[in-house]
Design a protein around this nucleic acid. Structure first.
Length: 328
DNA sequence: TATGCACGTTGTCCTGTCAA
DNA sequence: TTGACAGGACAACGTGCATA
C-alpha cells in the first residue's frame, strides 16, 4: 500500500493522545464527547489539514452521501435547471450529486444506472427515457431508493407536473386569450407519459372551446436539430394552416420561434416548463409551469426521506400547474 | 489458487470516573 | 449505590496486494 502524506484520524490521535475512535466522534461533534475535547481535537485537525476520507466512511457506513441524477438530455435548459436545483437542495442534506446523461437511449440509461451503482450512490433521481421499463425493474430489484422526475412509468415512484392540465391550460390560452382556432401541437414522443397526457389536455381544451380536433395538427418530434423545421415545412407543403402553436416544452417553443423567424408568420406560441423563471434572459414566452414547488424540490425531499428511513420511495406526486403569461 | 492482511472510518458495546 | 458522562476496544465494511 502506498503511503501518502494525507492526514488520517490515526495521525490526529497520536498528536492529541486520544484514540482514533474518540477523534472520529469529536470531529463529528457527537454529544458523547465533551465540548472542550471536541474543540481541542477539531482545532488540531484543522491545523494538520485533515480532510475526511469519504471512501473509508462509505466502506463502513454503506453510504456515500451521493445521489445519481440521470437525465435524458442535459443540453435541455430544463434539465440544466433541474440539476442546479437538485444539487443545491441535496447539499442542504449534506449530499452531492452525480450527473449522468442518457440521450433518451435505453442502453445508455442502463449503463448509467450500473455506473452509478458501482459508485455506491445512495439513491437515484431519474428522468426515464422512452421504453425504460426493464431498466426501472432492474433498478427496483437493487433495493436502492429512486424517484422518477418529469415522467410517469407504471407504478414507479415519481414526481411530475399535472401534464393533462398543462396541455389544457396552454391550448385554452391560445383559444381564449388569442382567439385561435387552428392550434398546432408540436408534441414529444407519445411513448412518454407527459406527451400522452398533454395531448389529452389539449383535446379537452379544444372540445371546451368548440374547436374540432384535427389530427394533422398534432406532430410528434424529437429534439434532434431540424425536426421542427421539417414539420413546419411539411404542413406548408400540404397546405395545412395553423394560427397558434402549443409546444411540448419551452425548448421546442424556442426552436419553433427560431424556425418561424424570417418567414413573416406572427403566430402566438405557448410552451411548458416556464424556464424563464430561472433563465430570465430568454425571450418572452407564454408558458405553463409548476404553480408552487418545483419537481426537483419534491423529488429531493422524497428521496432524502427514503434514504433517511432506509425505505423506498413509494409515492406518485402530481404537481399543480399554472399559466405564466409572457408579459409582452 | 486460497488466504490473510492492510487501508481509514465508524457503530456498538464496554469501562472508568465522578458527583449526587 | 446509582446514574450520567467521557472515552476506549472491537469489529466490520470493500478491495488490492502479498504470502503461503
Amino acid at each position: 500500500m502506498i503511503k501518502t502524506n494525507r492526514v488520517t484520524l490515526r495521525d490526529i490521535a497520536e498528536r492529541t493522545g486520544y484514540t482514533v475512535n474518540t477523534v472520529s466522534r469529536a470531529l463529528h461533534h457527537r454529544d458523547d464527547i465533551s465540548k472542550k475535547t471536541v474543540d481541542y481535537i477539531c482545532g488540531i485537525a484543522d491545523e494538520m489539514g485533515y480532510i475526511n476520507d469519504n471512501i473509508a466512511s462509505s466502506m463502513r457506513t454503506g453510504r456515500t452521501g451521493t445521489v445519481a441524477v440521470i437525465l435524458a438530455d442535459i443540453t435541455n435548459p430544463l434539465f440544466a435547471i433541474m440539476v442546479r436545483e437538485t444539487e443545491q437542495l441535496a447539499s442542504e442534506y449534506d449530499y452531492s450529486v452525480f450527473i449522468l446523461n442518457t440521450n433518451e437511449d435505453k442502453e445508455t440509461e442502463l449503463q448509467a444506472i450500473k455506473n452509478a451503482l458501482g459508485k455506491k450512490v445512495d439513491g437515484f433521481i431519474i428522468c426515464p427515457c422512452p421504453d425504460c421499463r426493464d431498466n426501472l425493474e432492474f433498478l427496483k430489484k437493487t433495493g436502492k431508493p429512486y424517484v422518477l422526475i418529469g415522467r410517469r412509468v407504471g407504478d414507479h415512484p415519481s414526481v411530475i407536473l399535472d401534464d393533462e392540465k398543462s396541455g389544457y391550460l396552454a391550448a385554452k390560452y391560445l383559444a381564449e386569450h388569442y382567439g385561435r382556432r387552428r392550434i398546432l401541437f408540436i408534441n414529444g414522443l407519445l411513448s412518454i407519459s407527459c406527451a400522452k397526457d398533454r395531448l389529452a389536455g389539449y383535446r379537452r381544451a379544444l372540445e371546451e372551446a368548440g374547436i374540432p380536433y384535427d389530427g394533422r395538427l398534432v406532430r410528434s418530434v424529437t429534439t434532434k436539430a431540424g425536426a421542427i423545421s421539417r414539420q413546419l415545412e411539411s404542413l406548408d407543403a400540404a397546405n395545412i394552416g395553423y394560427d397558434g402553436i402549443f409546444a411540448f416544452s419551452d425548448l421546442l417553443a424556442y426552436e419553433t420561434m427560431n424556425s418561424l423567424s424570417g418567414t413573416g408568420k406572427d403566430v402566438p406560441i405557448v410552451g411548458i416548463d416556464h424556464i424563464r423563471k430561472n433563465l430570465f434572459y430568454m425571450p418572452p414566452l407564454d408558458s405553463v409551469g409548476a404553480a408552487g414547488k418545483s419537481m426537483s424540490e419534491e423529488a429531493v425531499r422524497m428521496l432524502m426521506n427514503a434514504i433517511k428511513t432506509g425505505s423506498l420511495c413509494g409515492d406518485q406526486i402530481c404537481l399543480d400547474v399554472k399559466l405564466y403569461p409572457s408579459g409582452k
